[in-house]
Design a protein around this nucleic acid. Structure first.
Lengths: 162, 162
DNA sequence: GCAAATTAATGATTTATTCAAG
DNA sequence: CTTGAATAAATCATTAATTTGC
């Protein structure tokens, strides 16, 4: 629908890593600034920009290095795909864990005493703020993990006698 | 994929992926529950458990599938590595962006979407709710862009030189 | 310290699925 | 039922980080 007159525009890749002096790059590698921009856009909710926007984004990115419309398109496509996959993986993990939690007898009775942990985890779900969430009070599934006392120096010794 | 050679022989233990119903796997693939557990531990601050804890963790994970101490060790090693890299990349991006922000007038004011938080959120995961106050200039059409699809039917050569 | 070898990330392709016309 | 467009999933291939041995 809406034949926007977009023809088969194969990757008009005009990609180059470093504008300064790079030998030859067969594959576009976004520069930090470009990544930042793309991430910002993605995180702002625009996960699948229409062509018009894609062109605009490309123009914006071009200020920091050669890039083609196709690169931008690919980037968003991959971002969506991978984002979703991770989410699914996590969800599966949660479900599976919840379904099998009871199997773990007294393996770990957790003693939630973690005072705090300089938050700087990153990496996974993204939505996770702390360790206790997700299935905090789902059912009879007590968050049976969390807190394996961090053993900093010597051996395990709950010496956190505050 | 170059399964040709195992040089390092880290902690020796049993490591197999034949947990439930997998044919044969040369490499341990953590089950969702195991991932969840490992993530929880990692996020709880224990990013580098000593051997003692590693063994404990392995025993705990074993309830969900075969796993060896080495696998646990590797997992944490890789996890740390990944975290560090991500962090660095982000910082680099931020720095680079900051360094060039002035250069591009209002080209990229996108930077940080979410207010507050002194740049250390790194919530790239994929939580982005729907905060669209970026540059919703003229996005109306769903999304149409270069087709660059393949040629499934008919002739399409591409003998994959792989 | 550097360069080869390994590993993880991720850009680019291919394949399958979906949905709307015709 | 077929065709065409658009996407998402799966896969391939290359690049960049890390690790390792000299």
């Amino acid at each position: 629908h809406s034949p926007t007159g977009h023809s088969r525009s194969p990757p008009s890749s005009s990609a180059s890593g470093s504008t300064t002096s790079e030998p030859v790059r067969s594959r576009w590698s976004p520069k930090p600034e470009q990544i930042l921009i793309l991430e910002s856009i993605f995180n702002s909710g625009m996960v699948n920009p229409p062509k018009e926007e894609t062109v605009r984004i490309r123009k914006m990115l071009e200020k920091f290095g050669a890039v083609g419309d196709a690169n931008v398109f690919y980037w968003f496509q991959n971002r969506r795909s991978r984002s979703r996959r991770r989410q699914r993986q996590l969800q599966a993990a949660a479900a599976a864990a919840a379904a099998t939690t009871n199997t773990c007898d007294q393996t770990m009775m957790v003693s939630n005493s973690l005072p705090h942990h300089s938050g700087s985890d990153l990496g996974f779900g993204g939505c996770s703020t702390s360790s206790n969430y997700l299935f905090g009070g789902s059912s009879e599934v007590p968050s049976f993990f969390l807190s394996l006392s961090s053993s900093p120096p010597s051996c395990s010794s709950s010496s956190s006698t505050s």
